[in-house]
Design a protein around this nucleic acid. Structure first.
Lengths: 323, 323
DNA sequence: ACCGGCGATGTGACCGGTCACATCACTGAT
DNA sequence: ATCAGTGATGTGACCGGTCACATCGCCGGT
């Protein structure tokens, strides 16, 4: 029994007699043989696996996308690696690119929700097989397959929801994002403009809840602010607290909307009105796209568009009798 | 210039003249040479990297530990892989063990906060280099290096804090955990017993906020419940909401304490009294321990013990006048 | 009976590093 | 001046798979 036959069996080559295959499989089982992934990668020229490039592994969107990738990769026997790029600084980006350029990184999924990921995507040589998870409409200049959750419509829906409750306009506290105009922002702006509502300046918030809290305090000081669309749920909770600390009730005086629908958001007080995003499906779709490069047609994963889930943090603005 | 010399330079062998080393480094730089990790792993017999075995990548404690490991590994040029074990079912465990037994997995860090991780740890052949992140005092039967955050003291502190506020006893909603008696539970029970307070039955909660909510509703129905120590912050928020929905004010009527101090917990309403856990440091310590096997003495990472941070969700129980 | 053709299997080189060992140049002691 | 001893470098085999290609056995057509 030659080595080559074993190799063929393990790679599902059609050139093996069913009978032989059975024998080989049996021997493998009996001997407890396990192929060596490093040797395979070396011979193949590239590892059979995925490396996920991400700016963070703990933030909800990133972690959930990673989870989706992993869930799809595991049953396929693919190894999953992670490589964090902390910032878009040239050194960080270069190191990350070099890391995933190594054939043993396998295929690459770049989570390009932010500047760091986008920079890696731009700098990645085209001979490295990769797909990107991005914002809707982001990175049109990069010739890579992009998978995204189109949150523009949902951002629009959320804004219109607030407007329809009677709010004069909707303020927006943004999270760090690749383009100055993210899909969330675009949908928000769009809805405001269509409704003829004033478009307030975007308030920049960081990933830290504390920075969102500060943004919230600033917003709370402005009596014209009665509705706030936040870049994510954590931002929303901090903004809500800032409003509360400033004596402005949510949703009685100000309405707040988040993005993500993190686990537990429904149990906050007030239960958060937010946009549910299926990041795990996004991750699964990325893996499917990465794999579909190989000959067979892409078994496209269907992505449910983000959708607004209305809970308790939104309500009509206070009647102006007191003003 | 032979290949071997290059190899020596890259491995920081002392047997290279400084002058030669400089030349090699320069040539590497000029040629843009990058060593191939798969080839290296094959020659070395084992990859220069870490694989993290975990039951989940999104739960706060797990994700933060992973993050700590990654943060420590990256500057060292180590690759980081993840392998999820979904349950303690024999098949899941076996697959995970086989996966990390492959030399290309490198060293292994098993996050054994739960039954799945513990099962992998038990089944892992001793020739696979591994360390475990566990609960304090968990898995005494496994001959592996264990790193843990000793939350027993903090659990005790939290319980005593509640007792000292005047609560007759403290109930506990547990999260899934390895042993029936986790360190959190042990500290809680300990404090209760020392104070001569009754020890109520532990209420089992799952990872899902919803299951914690149900547990909270059950607790809310019992007028004797005035203080609840929850297994984690997400559980705490759901329990708090259950109490709220049942018309019992927190902290006016019932006090609630969490574990973890997740980002944003200070901005919840009421701001959560919780036990801060430095999972990232735990992760860094695991990596250090894994690496210290190699000859040189372990540069032990110092772990700050978990500590109680008192905020708004705890207060004296209501005076009994109304009863 | 002969041959072409094809499917199943075996052979050797190779992927890119590592290891053990051989070799070399140079040093200082005798 | 000779030699042992040492540190720096080169040599070959090897890690465990893959690839391209050679070979084998069997089939049917003439």
């Amino acid at each position: 029994m030659s080595y080559q036959t074993v190799s063929r069996v393990l790679n599902d080559s059609p050139r093996v007699r069913p009978d032989t295959r059975r024998q080989v499989l049996e021997a493998i089982d009996r001997l407890g043989y396990r192929p060596n992934r490093a040797a395979r990668a070396l011979g193949l020229g590239r590892a059979h696996g995925v490396t996920v490039v991400t700016a963070d592994t703990t933030l909800y969107g990133y972690a959930s996308t990673l989870r989706g990738i992993e869930e799809a990769a595991r049953p396929l026997g693919l190894s999953v690696g992670i490589r964090v790029v902390e910032s878009e600084r040239p050194d960080d980006v270069r190191h990350a690119v070099e890391y995933v350029s190594d054939p043993s990184a396998g295929g690459v999924v770049v989570i390009a929700f932010d500047a760091a990921g986008a920079a890696v995507l731009r700098a990645l040589p085209l001979d490295v097989p990769a797909v990107a998870a991005t914002e809707a409409g982001g990175l049109p200049d990069v010739p890579r397959e992009m998978i995204f959750l189109d949150e523009r419509q949902a951002a629009s829906d959320a804004t219109r929801h607030l407007l329809s409750l009677g709010h004069r306009t909707v303020h927006h506290v943004a999270i760090p994002s690749e383009t100055g105009a993210s899909a969330r922002q675009a949908g928000w702006r769009d809805a405001l403009e269509r409704a003829g509502a004033p478009v307030p300046a975007v308030v920049p918030g960081g990933w830290e809840p504390r920075s969102a809290y500060r943004a919230g305090r600033a917003l709370a000081a402005d009596p014209l602010v009665t509705a706030v669309l936040c870049g994510n749920d954590t931002t929303a909770i901090a903004v809500r607290r800032a409003l509360y600390d400033a004596g402005r009730d949510v949703p009685g005086e100000v309405s707040v909307v988040g993005f993500d629908d993190v686990p537990g958001a429904e149990f906050w007080t007030p239960a958060l009105t937010t946009v549910r995003m299926d990041f795990a499906a996004l991750g699964r779709a990325c893996l499917a796209a990465l794999l579909s490069d190989d000959a067979d047609p892409a078994p496209r994963v269907k992505l449910d568009p983000p959708c607004l889930v209305v809970r308790e943090s939104t309500a009509p603005p206070p009647t102006r009798t007191g003003m």
